[in-house]
Design a protein around this nucleic acid. Structure first.
Lengths: 339, 339
DNA sequence: GGCGAAAATGACAACGCTGTCAATTCTTCT
DNA sequence: AGAAGAATTGACAGCGTTGTCATTTTCGCC
């Protein structure tokens, strides 16, 4: 590789001092428009790229944001990552990945060590790490900025979320509109706020339709395919079994469909099934799954943009809510025989 | 945060010069054992972490490796990432993610720009980016080290792979052992070496079993669920349809199962289906999919370790082959009625 | 036109570490 | 014991930026 172009070279080419080039590059105020143009021209002509480490060292910033996650769905995380990277690119920032074990006793040690070593300028938290009290407390102490994606307690932090309760509510309304009255629900993992919100939306949906809540129709799950299988076995083993099952995510819904087929039930003629998340898999099973689409990539991008803005302006952002979409597919329908 | 502990502080605590501390930290030779211990003790006592940017600036290294990928399966990529991160952690390295569009005319510009900006010490290439001639040529020019995961041409580069041909061969043998003679194959995306290897293994498997190759039983695919659906419709629409279909990956196999169920065929009683990759989805469809497990996490880890070794020792590594596993599940079986 | 204030620019010292090379200490051999 | 050579250690100058603060230029106004 040819020798590196340095800020000094650009300064000479533009006939200004290094510091002025630095100002232009960092969009600092108090630079005359014509010198700004002159510098920018020199930068482009020389194809100058500032040295990240030098910037970081001199500027007392790492130009790094860390993405904290704990074993989420790869599909979900990859979408979030794509969004965060897109946001970082526009602002000369980098993203580092931080896989963590939320439940582990060394969780906070791992976080401390990561922070001490990498010195990120900010963090992006994904569920369920959004809701680790010890972590949030420590970040406040360190005055380290963070943005949360779908945190449980949304009032007190910056970040982005969708109205999951409303989405679940809409989904139940969809089932009701198809004629279903006995609607089962498989809950999500108790550590995730999403589980509560989706259950709440389920209950509100029943209320709205004037259907009495029946606790035997709600079973525990933990977002995994296997827990969906177990939940489905419980629900479909009931004397009066539900005609529709709303699983709190797609993986569990896939488990439900598997059990239904195994039991000789047709989907959706004998049983309607719906999930939440719109994973790629939801289109790859038979029948394609009715679900809720959460714009994860946008959420990653927006969370990162908020975080970067907060880092620059040193002010707190707000929790942003963005729209979701119901994906109505073939796994839900009217009953073949009127119940 | 408290004021940062610097190498100077450690040096003072240990009663040596900064340079000696640096030597201990970087495992350089020519340090007496007792001073090494003394320094290490001071490092631990003060919980000293070297400042990455300062190290990078002074050492003319970025301590960064870049992971290049183009829209692969999220499941696959997340496994690779986990492996690469694990390897990086042990050596004080960082990983950066580089999503790229392999087919785009700006592909090389994107790469150049990333390299110029981030100055990674090495790259990890994932399929199909492993096989971009322009990229490999440029990396050779730049003398930038890289490790390839499952590249098409394995002789000339460092990296890691499994014997995909042999795995496909084994899979066909499995189908033959169940009594199948008319075995269809849906090919993968032509840009991926894997497509060729798996097809080759399919043909070798037929040869071994003394089954004549029938080109009407091999159809094009491109690794997507949808292409699996189309391929299955072709194969199952044949006058004499196959009794088993070996799809070149799991997504396509899922498409095959969907079509089979839609046509009223039972799996595996009327049709055996198998895939490749052992994605989580392969366990979440009904019936669970027979497939080949590729240890992607290990492959990521090993590729990163090779790369880091090469960066340190400035010497070229070799292509490593590691074992795969056949996952025999319920989507393959004997025919219900002898054909 | 001249004055004071504000805007624009520049000089130079950090930032925290490693490379270089010189200085010191230890070995080994005679 | 002394010399040569090897092993170990240290002093110090960068690495390429930005922060600080001084200096110069421009502007508004009487």
């Amino acid at each position: 590789m040819a020798v590196r172009v340095r800020i000094e070279d650009v300064a000479e080419a533009a006939g200004v001092s290094m510091k002025t080039v630095s100002r232009v590059l960092n969009r600092e105020p108090n630079v005359r428009e014509d010198t700004r143009v002159r510098v920018q021209t020199a930068v482009d002509a020389l194809n100058y790229k500032p040295h990240p480490s030098a910037r970081s060292l001199a500027g007392h910033k790492s130009y790094l944001i860390a993405l904290l996650y704990d074993n989420p769905s790869p599909n979900y995380l990859m979408e979030v990552i794509a969004g965060v990277l897109a946001a970082c690119e526009t602002q000369q920032y980098n993203m580092m990945m931080c896989p963590l074990d939320f439940g582990s006793p060394t969780f906070m040690n791992a976080v401390e060590s990561m922070i001490a070593h990498s010195q990120p300028d900010g963090l992006i938290l994904t569920p369920p790490i959004t809701d680790a009290p010890a972590l949030l407390k420590r970040l406040a102490e360190l005055e380290l900025a963070y943005a949360s994606i779908s945190p449980r307690r949304q009032k007190q932090c910056m970040g982005v979320a969708i109205d999951e309760t409303r989405a679940a509510f809409d989904m139940v309304q969809h089932l009701v509109s198809l004629g279903h009255r006995r609607i089962g629900h498989i809950k999500g993992h108790p550590a995730h706020g999403a589980s509560d919100w989706r259950l709440a939306g389920y209950r509100e949906g029943l209320d709205k339709a004037g259907i009495k809540f029946d606790s035997s129709l709600v079973v525990d799950g933990e977002f995994s395919f296997e827990s969906g299988v177990i939940g489905a076995e419980q629900l479909l083993g009931l004397r009066q079994r539900p005609t529709a099952i709303f699983a709190a995510n797609d993986d569990m819904a896939a488990g439900v469909i598997g059990v239904a087929l195994r039991l000789g039930l047709r989907v959706p003629e004998d049983l309607s099934v719906c999930g939440f998340d719109n994973t790629p898999m939801s289109l790859q099973i038979y029948p394609p799954l009715t679900t809720v689409h959460q714009p994860s990539r946008d959420m990653g991008r927006i969370a990162a943009l908020e975080l970067l803005a907060a880092i620059h302006k040193r002010e707190v952002g707000k929790m942003l809510h963005i729209p979701y979409t119901l994906k109505l597919r073939q796994s839900t329908g009217k009953l073949a025989t009127p119940s």
